[in-house]
Amino acid sequence: MSDQNNWQQQVWQQPQQQPQGYPQPQPPYYAPEPPKKGKGWIVGLVAILAIFSIIIVGMISCTSMFTSSVGSFSSLSGATVSDVDYLTSDAVGIINIDGTIQYDGTTSSPEGLKAQLDKAENNPHVKAIVLRVNSGGGTATAGEEMTSYLKDFSKPVVVSSASMNASAAYEISSQADYIFTAKTTSIGAIGTAMQITDLSGLYEKLGIRIDDITSADSKDSSYGNRPLTEEERAYYQDMVDQINETFIETVAEGRSMSVEEVRALATGLTFTGMTAVENGLADEIGTLEDAVEKAAELANVTAYTTVTLQNNSSLDMMDLLDILGSSSSTDDLSAALKELGLDGAITR
C-alpha cells in the first residue's frame, strides 16, 4: 500500500501523506503553473484596449449623433484638422460640402458650415473661401439655413463644383461670388419634391389592416396607409410650389438674374457644366486650383497658402481602431482620444 500511496502522491500532487488503507477516490487535480513575473502590464493593456474597443463600436453605431455633437461644439473647441489657428500669412480657406445636405454636424449641415465660416470670418489671415461642392442636394430647410449663413459671410466666396452640384447644394452655391464647374459636372436641378408612399395595396394583399385614430381627417395623410384625397394632394402641391418659389428667388438674387430667367431653368433637371456656363447658372469651366486662384484675386492677395477648414475631429473612428490594433504607445492612444474629444467628455 505504501508504494501505491507514493504513486498517487506523484500523480495527484497531494500535499499530505495519504492515510493507510484503501485510498479514497480523488478528483483530478492539475497543479497550477507558477505565475510569470513582469506580465501584468500586458493584461492591463489588453483590458484597457478591450474597453476602448467596446466604447468605439458603440459610438460607431450612433455616428450621426456623435458627429452632430462634434459639429455643435467645434466653434468652442478651437481644434481643427488644419493649421488655421497657426496661420501667420494670407490664406485661402477650403470648405468641403460633400454628400447629402442635412442636419448631421458636418460641413454639409447648417451647424457644421457655420462653425467653419465663423472661424474664417474671425481669422484675419483667411482672406477668402472656396467651397468644394460635391452634393446632389438634400433637406430644403438645411439648404435654406446654409444659404443664409453664406449670405452673411463678408469675405469673397468661390465655388468649385465637383461631379455634382445640384438642388439644395446649388442653392447654397448660388450665393457665391463666382462659380466654377467642370464640363461634365451635373449642376442645377432647381426644383422641389415631396414623396408620399401608398402601401395600402400591399397591405391588402398581405391581409394587413391598419386603423389610424387621428384628431383630424388628414393627420394620417403621409403615413402611407391609404391614398391621398384630391384635397390633400392639392394641399401638398401648394406647399411644394411655395418652397420651390423661395428656391427660385434665392438663386435669382444670388446669380443677379431675373426671377423669370431662373424659373425658365427650374425644370428640376441638371445641366452639364458647359450648358450651365451658357445659361448663367455658372461662370466658368475650371478646376479647384482655378477656384483658389480666383478667390485670391477677389481678395486682392498675390502671395498666399491654402488651408482646409473642417470639423474639429481630424481622426475618425476607423483611424482610432487602427491605433488600437497596432502596437502604438499609450501616449499615441491618449493623444488620439483627446483629438476625438473623448478625454473626459460625454458624447451622445
Rank of each mutant, 00 (worst) to 15 (best):
D98T: 11
V70L: 14
L150I: 11
G137I: 00
S72D: 15
S167N: 15
S154H: 08
I94W: 00
G78A: 07
D90N: 15
I101P: 03
K119H: 00
L113P: 03
D104Y: 14
S160Y: 08
Y86C: 12
V126Y: 09
S68L: 14
V70R: 13
L76C: 10
I129M: 07
L113T: 03
S109N: 03
V70W: 08
S74D: 12
V158N: 03
L87R: 01
I129V: 15
S109Y: 02
A168C: 08
S89E: 07
D85Y: 09
E145P: 01
A120C: 01
F73M: 13
S69Q: 15
P156G: 10
D85R: 11
L113S: 06
P156V: 04
A166K: 14
G99I: 09
N96I: 06
D83A: 14
T141I: 13
L117D: 04
E145N: 06
G136M: 14
G143D: 05
S108M: 10
A142K: 05
T106F: 03
V158W: 01
S77K: 15
T100G: 09
A162S: 14
N96E: 08
S68D: 13
P156M: 08
S75D: 11
G71D: 11
I95E: 00
S160R: 01
L117K: 05
L87P: 00
A142M: 07
K127E: 05
T147S: 10
T107L: 03
P156F: 06
T67R: 12
E111Q: 12
D118M: 02
D118S: 04
A115D: 04
K114V: 10
G137K: 00
S135G: 09
G71C: 09
S74A: 10
E144V: 12
V70F: 08
S69G: 13
Q102P: 02
Q102G: 11
G93N: 06
S160M: 04
I97C: 11
